[in-house]
């Protein structure tokens, strides 16, 4: 089916669609996600914010809490998107200050995972380019189902959104909220959202409905 109005073959639309999903790659039970953004802050500041892993839950939707347990070790608690009671320990296995941080889950993690984040000065001399690669080993059972459901058909979108919020937090101080998407990083709902009108007292009191 072609587009009568533009004369473009419909195949072009399909190609664009597939470009959008190609960045989340499933290899058997393992899923690799990559995303990148540019943040208008100097490398040391961006690096330091990420290196304090306890900051990650402020912008990563699937995390409830990360607690440092040592200089290179930490305990991670997943949020509702990964299902309940999913926790693991992680260790930083490689770090070069101002350049990269590499971590991996250790022990008997429910969702074994590794992550790499690289920081590079942007050509404008002001900003920092951030590249993130996350690899998850998707387990079977309910946890695996929850994780698969969370990532859905466009797994990279979650990481893109995480980095968008990372940028918001560093550049503006917090995650941006609107009336239609009032709960910051918890707003990850498919459309339709709530109407773009102010929240009632009971909605405000109830908070995010997760």
């Amino acid at each position: 089916m072609g587009d009568l109005l533009t004369g473009a073959p419909a195949g072009q639309v399909t190609e664009i669609d597939s470009l959008l999903v190609v960045r989340g790659i499933c290899r058997g039970e393992s899923m690799e996600l990559t995303a990148t953004t540019t943040i208008r802050k100097p490398v040391p500041e961006v690096y330091a914010f990420w290196r304090d892993l306890e900051n990650l839950p402020t912008f990563m939707a699937h995390l409830e809490e990360v607690r440092s347990t040592g200089d290179r070790t930490s305990h991670w608690v997943a949020g509702a998107p990964f299902g309940k009671d999913v926790e693991w320990d992680a260790e930083i296995v490689d770090e070069v200050p101002g350049e990269k941080i590499v971590w991996r889950s250790i022990g008997d993690a429910d969702v074994p995972n590794t992550g790499t984040v690289r920081f590079m000065p942007a050509p404008d001399g002001v900003s920092t380019e951030v590249q993130v690669v996350l690899v998850y080993d998707i387990p079977g059972g309910t946890v695996g189902k929850a994780v698969a459901k969370y990532f859905g058909e466009e797994p990279h979108q979650q990481l893109d959104d995480d980095l968008r919020r990372f940028k918001q937090v560093l550049e503006t101080g917090e995650v941006v909220r609107s009336d239609g998407a009032p709960w910051g990083k918890r707003a990850r709902k498919e459309f339709p959202q709530r109407p773009a009108q102010p929240l009632s007292d009971s909605e405000l009191a109830k908070g995010a409905d997760e």
């Binding site: 941006v176 609107s178 239609g180 959202q193 773009a196 009108q197």
Partner: peptide, 14 residues
């Protein structure tokens, strides 16, 4: 984001 101009531009009340 734009005030009162759909959820595509943020879902901000106008």
């Amino acid at each position: 984001g734009i005030f009162g101009y759909s959820h595509l531009t943020g879902g901000f009340a106008g």
